[in-house]
Simulated assay, not measured.
Amino acid sequence: MYRVLVAVSDDVDQARKQAEFVASLPGRGALDVTVTHAYDETNERGPHGESLPPEESDGVQAAKALLEDAGVPVETRETYHPVAEGVVDLAVDVDADLVVVGARKRTPIGKAVFGSVTQSVVLDSPVPVTVVGVE
């Protein structure tokens, strides 16, 4: 079994591109895919004060649907802020063999000011990372 963690954002088109990449990997039947999206730790509370799980983001729903349509088994997991750290921790937790992240077009100044989740995941991941870019 080859375990793949797909970390998506709210960008549905990007999430679909990431899912298409995973669906194109050889041996789809031997893939075990986890799709995740980072959420705030301030989830809504239920009537008894319990933390309610967040609804799946549009990106998660799009990636999950595309992968399921391609016959790839998918599970979804939550991760929380800080995003890059959460993705790397989840990769370890699910024993991933590969992490698939998306890239956004950003100026060098934008990267310097706001940081880059993709860059942090690439640098900190204990397993290979595939970056699926935008066209």
Rank of each mutant, 00 (worst) to 15 (best):
V4K: 00
V6A: 04
A7R: 06
D11K: 13
A15V: 07
R16N: 02
R16Q: 14
A19C: 05
A19H: 07
V22F: 10
V22H: 05
A23N: 10
S24C: 14
L25P: 02
L25V: 05
L25T: 00
P26M: 03
P26V: 04
G27T: 08
G29A: 12
G29W: 01
V33L: 08
T34N: 04
V35S: 09
H37E: 10
H37S: 01
A38S: 15
D40T: 08
T42G: 07
E44F: 03
H48N: 15
H48L: 12
H48Q: 11
P54M: 04
E55D: 11
E56Q: 14
S57C: 04
G59L: 09
G59D: 03
V60A: 11
A62V: 06
A63V: 03
A63N: 07
K64Y: 03
K64W: 03
L67C: 07
L67V: 10
E68Q: 12
E68H: 03
D69A: 15
V72P: 02
P73A: 01
T76G: 00
R77N: 01
R77I: 06
T79S: 15
P82M: 06
A84L: 08
E85Y: 08
E85W: 02
E85P: 07
V87G: 06
V87H: 00
V87N: 09
V88D: 05
L90I: 07
V92Q: 09
V92E: 10
D93T: 11
L98G: 09
L98H: 05
V100S: 06
V101I: 15
A103M: 09
R106M: 04
I109M: 14
I109L: 15
K111W: 01
V113I: 15
F114D: 09
G115L: 03
V117W: 01
T118I: 02
Q119V: 11
S120R: 06
V121K: 00
L123A: 14
D124P: 02
P126W: 00
V129W: 07
G133A: 13
